[in-house]
Design a protein around this nucleic acid. Structure first.
Length: 288
DNA sequence: CTCCAGGCGCCTT
DNA sequence: AAGGCGCATGGA
């Protein structure tokens, strides 16, 4: 592997490992000191360096580093974002514990499909299911590297999955989520739902479109709005975030569901989505 | 072994 | 509107 294929992506205060393992994306795998993954069809190895991220392209041709930079959101001034978080002990601790954590800007279809598979699954299990799906129905990507021995696969397109049946999907161990993924793939592939068009809608309208898909409720819709489209006001509330907010902000008495929702909507400011990810990751790293 | 996981859909009140 | 339950699978 020649040095020529390396690319330095400048980024101030970027925690690559934290970002890639914080439950936003499920395809990254540690290989030595690097992270192996596929970004919009570009097979890459990424590693942390002072002042940024270094990428190595693994494909036959040159990798599209503009696409990778956008995916990683390296140009986001993260300090300016965390600056807008509420000045309370909880968020200060979360920022301290997760310094450099970013929200990714993922491909909508991969993000949507992955989160349909996420319901009542631990992150390791989501990774396993997604990996099985890619190995079975993704396209083989030829890797030019002596280091990476195993084959890489693209994330299977909606069109590809739409042509399968439920049993084929169940073979990837996704259980009751199979019919949801299949029907959603068919609606996306047929054009009944336009994932690119969602980009130009307001948050509430975009959420409405996503929630209309089978297997997609408020939580998963918010994950896609935040992790794929960058709607900063989308705030996924899962068991961890609910637990975090309840324990950290209402230690005395458990709030009602309505009270909890209202608190979340008003407390976290203009970058609530980012705040949510810091809370989520903080709860997870705190546990270990 | 039991418990529960980045939920959702559907059926009761 | 709000609450309860089943769903399929496998880590912990």
């Amino acid at each position: 592997m020649s040095k020529l294929s390396e690319k330095f992506l400048a980024a101030r205060n970027y925690d690559l490992a934290g970002t890639l393992t914080s439950g936003q994306a499920f395809r990254w795998r540690a290989v030595g000191q690097e992270w192996l993954g596929v970004v919009r069809g570009n097979p890459v190895l990424l590693r942390q360096e002072a002042g940024g991220v270094v990428g190595r392209g693994l494909g036959g041709g040159p990798a599209d580093w503009q696409v990778v930079a956008d995916y990683l959101q390296v140009s986001v001034e993260i300090d300016a974002v965390t600056e807008t978080f509420p000045k309370d002990g909880v968020m200060e601790r979360a920022v301290e514990a997760c310094r450099g954590l970013r929200l990714l800007r993922q491909e909508p279809w991969e993000c949507l499909a992955s989160f349909i598979l996420s319901s009542t699954k631990q992150i390791v299990q989501i990774q396993q299911i997604v990996r099985a799906l890619c190995e079975c129905y993704g396209e083989r990507i030829v890797v030019q590297s002596e280091v990476i021995k195993e084959p890489l696969y693209s994330f299977p397109s909606a069109e590809r999955l739409a042509g399968l049946d439920e049993a084929a999907l169940r073979s990837c161990k996704m259980g009751f989520r199979a019919p949801y993924l299949l029907e959603t793939a068919r609606r996306v592939a047929s054009g009944a739902v336009d994932l690119e068009g969602i980009r130009h809608l307001k948050t509430a309208e975009a959420r409405e479109v996503l929630v209309s898909l089978p297997g997609v409720g408020e939580k998963i819709a918010n994950c896609v709005l935040l992790f794929a489209y960058g709607f900063q006001d989308a705030f996924p509330v899962d068991v961890w975030v609910k637990r975090a907010v309840t324990e950290l902000y209402f230690p005395k008495r458990k709030p009602t569901e309505k009270r909890l929702r209202r608190f979340i909507e008003t407390h976290f400011g203009p970058n609530a989505g980012y705040a949510q990810q810091y809370l989520f990751h903080y709860m997870r790293v705190r546990k270990r």
